[in-house]
Every structure is written in C-alpha cells, then in structure tokens.
Amino acid sequence: MAIYGTALLALCTLLGAVLGELLGHVLHVKANVGGVGLAMLLLIAAKAWLARRGKLTPGLRLGVEFWGLMYIPIVVAMAAQQNVLAALEGGPMVVIAGISAVTLCFALVAVLGRVMGGRHG
C-alpha cells in the first residue's frame, strides 16, 4: 500500500528531525543540526532493510517516490515565496559567487579526472 511508503518517509523525516534537534542540543547550537541529511540516511538504510526482506513492494515505493518527484515543484513553490525584493540588494555577490564556484568546480573536474583516471587505468 502506498500509505506504507509515505508513512515510512514520514517516520524517517520525523526521526531525522528529532535526531537533528538532539544533535543541536548536544552541540549547543540553537538549531536543527543536519536533520534532513540524517533522515535521508535513515531512509536509505530502511530501503536496504526492506529490500533484503523482500518487502519493497511497488505500492510502498510509489508512496515514497511520488514525494521525490514532487521535490522540484515544491522547490518552485519555495522560490515563489522568498523575499526576492530584499535579495536583489546583494546582486553582484550572487553573480560573482555563482561564477567563481562553477569555474573552480569545472577546473576540479578536469584535475580529478586526470589524477584519479590515471591511477585506475
């Protein structure tokens, strides 16, 4: 059933949020520390566990994958409610940061490909 997948996703998200809050408390950061990332790791672990037991049914998958597919539209909705008017005051920083980061990473792809490529034949 699809709801099992969505419920599993919900459980991982909630557990990740709780762990992130606890981690924040331990680290004395007034924030949720890595809750989303921890939830992702939990979901990967849960998927592997279910797959080993043959319980990864198409219905269950659908219940998770639907939300994965909704991620771009949700990000679009997220972008639509940002305070862009205020953000435009920092215009040049956005452009310089974007261009420098992409240029540096393109260069690193070439370096990594050459260095590691040689090592593995």
Partner: peptide, 8 residues
Amino acid sequence: FAIVATAF
C-alpha cells in the same frame, strides 16, 4: 519531506 524522499 520531499527532499528526504529523493534519497530513495
């Protein structure tokens, strides 16, 4: 919720 789902 949606971002966690992409890990699947």
